[in-house]
Design a protein around this nucleic acid. Structure first.
Length: 272
DNA sequence: AAACAGGCCTAAA
DNA sequence: TTTAGGCCTGTT
């Protein structure tokens, strides 16, 4: 086990339950267990310290980057607090960190997410990993890594049938094959500005404006990407009116602003 | 039973 | 450029 200091406002629960990831679960003691970068982790937060248990050799440096711990989110909260509503939602979600997820995992996960609810998304991804990921162990419990694009590229629609992912299955295969063959180089997208990278992603069948934006924000950490889903559309129209342009209004941290808005809308909706 | 869920695609104005 | 209908599946 290893330990690192984390910022006071950092929250495991907000970070993992704000809708950006699908492979982490809360344990009874409020610690979180999940899989990232081919490794299973258990993260326990207490007194400003994060205790890390890992199934492999990835450790502190990987987690610090994955959790974006070195970035000043108080400053971001301030920058996006353009009105009282944004002050409220950024204060509400100020423990959120935008994760540095694997690009392929993010792309594949958000292809699956379309027109689905979060429990079902988690179920489909869990089956995908169980069937085609590699088995790893942590504290005597078994987990499965997210299958690589290379691995999925060699599968057929019949192989994916057990996922019950419906019309998304061909989208998944098509994306995996383009990534595996190099037709789409996800690492090259890192070097592009958000707009250009998004246009590249949208060439994929089954990847539109929303899925591409999610991939850029959560998979390539492009913090200016602003995914708009049905929740977001409602929240933005209600709070800012119809002609509002979020990317212009929030600038380089539009994606973080989006996450504060989404998390607030999602939690308050659930508790109604 | 019928509508809806963190979209996207195609066809048609 | 915008809009309507269909799509797999599971849940309500």
């Amino acid at each position: 086990m290893e330990i690192i200091k984390v910022p006071k406002n950092f929250s495991l629960e907000q970070t993992f339950e704000c809708g950006q990831c699908f492979r982490w679960r809360m344990n009874e003691d409020k610690s979180y267990t999940g899989i990232a970068g081919g490794t299973a982790f258990r993260l326990e937060l207490s007194d400003g310290e994060l205790k890390i248990t890992s199934s492999g050799d990835k450790n502190i440096d990987y987690i610090a980057d994955y959790l974006d711990l070195d970035r000043d989110y108080d400053e971001i909260c301030q920058k996006v607090s353009i009105d009282d509503y944004m002050k409220t939602v950024s204060a509400f979600g100020n423990g959120i960190r935008i994760l540095n997820q694997e690009p392929w995992e993010a792309l594949c996960s958000f292809i699956i997410s379309q027109c689905n609810n979060i429990p079902r998304i988690k179920g489909i991804i869990s089956k995908l990993c169980g069937l085609y990921g590699d088995k790893i162990a942590l504290d005597g419990e078994e987990f499965y890594t997210f299958p690589t694009a290379d691995r999925i590229a060699e599968l057929t629609e019949d192989d994916l049938a057990p996922l019950r992912s419906g019309y998304r299955a061909p989208y998944i295969l098509n994306a995996a094959r383009d990534v595996a063959s190099g037709i789409l180089d996800l690492e090259k997208l890192r070097l592009m500005d958000t707009k250009t990278a998004k246009a590249e992603l949208k060439k994929l069948n089954g990847v539109g404006e929303k899925v591409a934006s999610c991939m850029l924000l959560f998979g390539l950490h492009k913090l200016d990407a602003f995914p708009v889903d049905v929740w977001m559309k409602r929240a933005v129209e209600k709070s800012f009116g119809k002609g509002f342009d979020p990317e212009k209004a929030f600038g380089e941290y539009a994606g973080v602003a989006q996450q504060y808005i989404f998390y607030h809308a999602y939690v308050t909706k659930l508790s109604e």
